[in-house]
Structure formats: C-alpha cells, structure tokens
Design a protein around this nucleic acid. Sequence first.
DNA 1: CCCGACGTGAAGCTTTCTGTTAAAAGCGAC
DNA 2: GTCGCTTTTAACAGAAAGCTTCACGTCGGG
Lengths: 139, 139
Amino acid sequence: MKLSVKSDYAARAVIGLAKHFPTGAALKVEELANESGTPANYLVQILIELKSRNIVKSVRGKEGGYLLARPPGEISLGDVLRCVHGRVFDPPALHDPHCPSELRAAWNKLQTALDETADGITFQHLLDEGADKAKMYYI
Amino acid sequence: MKLSVKSDYAARAVIGLAKHFPTGAALKVEELANESGTPANYLVQILIELKSRNIVKSVRGKEGGYLLARPPGEISLGDVLRCVHGRVFDPPALHDPHCPSELRAAWNKLQTALDETADGITFQHLLDEGADKAKMYYI
DNA sequence: CCCGACGTGAAGCTTTCTGTTAAAAGCGAC
DNA sequence: GTCGCTTTTAACAGAAAGCTTCACGTCGGG
C-alpha cells in the first residue's frame, strides 16, 4: 500500500512554511515549490486544500503568498494527512454487508493506531528534529 | 487514503478458511467466494498470492480446494496485508532526495505503528471476537 | 489601469485496481 | 489411459485514481 506523493508534498510544504513561520512573511508558491522540490502547479492545489482546513492562510497581491495559519506546534501530521486524503485508512468494508463485523473492528483498530501516531507528531517536533540533525553535522 | 478492496477480500478469505480450519477439509474457491461475498475470479488471484507466502495451501483435483497453511493463531493481519500489497504504508519519499530526513523519519514512525498493530492481530483473535459476538446474540 | 500574485477548473497522461476470460496442468476415479 | 474435477497461470480490458500541466479568472496594490 502506497502513501501518495500528494501527502508527501503537503507535508514538505508545511515544513517549508514552518521554517519561515518566525519571520511572519508570506512565501510565494514558486519559492516554496523550489525549496521543497515539488511541482509548483500541483502544489497550488494542495495549498488550497490546506487553506480550507485552516492549516495555512494566503495573502494576495504583490508581496503575497502563503503562511502558516497556526504555530507549528499546533499542526500535526495527522491534520495534514486527513486534509489531503479523506480519512487515513478508509476501510472499503464500510458499505459492504458481507464484511464480518470482527474484521471491521480490526480495520478500525488499524485506523486509530495510525491516527493517534500521526496526531502525536507536530511540525514543531519535525522542526526540532531537523535542527538537531543540523547541529550534529556542525559538531 | 484508501485501503484497497483486495486487502479486505484477502482478510475475509482467510477468516473463512480459519473457520473451517478445525475440520481439516479443503474448501473450494467457489464455496469460499460465496461464503465471504467476494468475486470468485478475483479471489483466485488473491489466494495464489497468499499461497506463495505460505499463508494458505492448496489441494488439486476432486475434493480439492484451499486450506490454511498454519493455525489461525500464527497468522496475523499484517502477514496478509503485506502479502497483498508490498509494504504497508510505502513512503513515496524513499527515492526522492528532496524529502527532508525528518519527514522520512515521521513516515517510518507511522509505518512501524501500523505494522505493529497489524502484527498484533491474529486470525485467532478475530475468530474469538466473532464467536463472542455470536454468543451475545444468543443471550 | 496594470502588474503580480493567488484561485479554480479542466484536460491529458500514466498507473493501479478490479474483474474477466481462456488455456494449461495436476489429481483421483473409472 | 481418459474423463471430470479442481487449481494454476497468463493475458486482457474497463474503471478509477493519481499526477501533472495549462489556461483563464480574481483580487490587491502601486
């Protein structure tokens, strides 16, 4: 089972915005695309979805662009994942009466495990990890 | 992110075989398909994959069919999932150098969470749950 | 007004998923 | 051996989803 590239792009974009969050300035789509190595035209669509979920916000006109709607500590990987796809781990069995209930329960167990893990990872954590990594190179 | 119907079918098939495991008799593909509500022609392909991973085994000829290769307690949902798809939660970032390492670590964390949960659920557990459910109706 | 940026929808392409079909091969019974 | 039953394997096709690009609409500021 493949995690879609879209989620990866979305997460990278939020990381990129999180790094610039302290400056308070908006980041243009193209800059963000270059920085995170994602196709700009696709990134736009993802950013719009992220905006509708109140994860990022946008500024129009010259000097416009995107910035985080909330501090990185209040945005979890689960938020981004659920924004990009619907639910993480959507069970196909929901609408199939042939699926035994015990199996349905098992799928739900997997889903909650995933959700809880993803919700436990905030982008502040990811920033800190990245900083630690950079420091280790410095030493 | 959608869990594929294939995994659902595979799990249902193994549950069906697990129920018949005590009898020691082989179950024909068509019987299994009827019982688990899966398209027989598609189920065949899934069963072959399950066989190659030593989850089920087959008997040819008249009175032939499929049966579990191991007792239900030794088969986990993770086994079936990994058989049907490659890895559960394959991160697309693996081959993309632009993906920051901290994000890669996060994807791995999600993957291991999922794997551990799925490996913790054996089909014996599922059978017991189903039996409990039946008993509750009985009361 | 005009430029530069976001916003939106649609189109094309590729890949994966799902399901079907048909032919090959093994096993047991007569 | 041959026949009927089953699994096995390969090939195929339609449907759906994912990815990407493009073109045009919209808004804000100089």
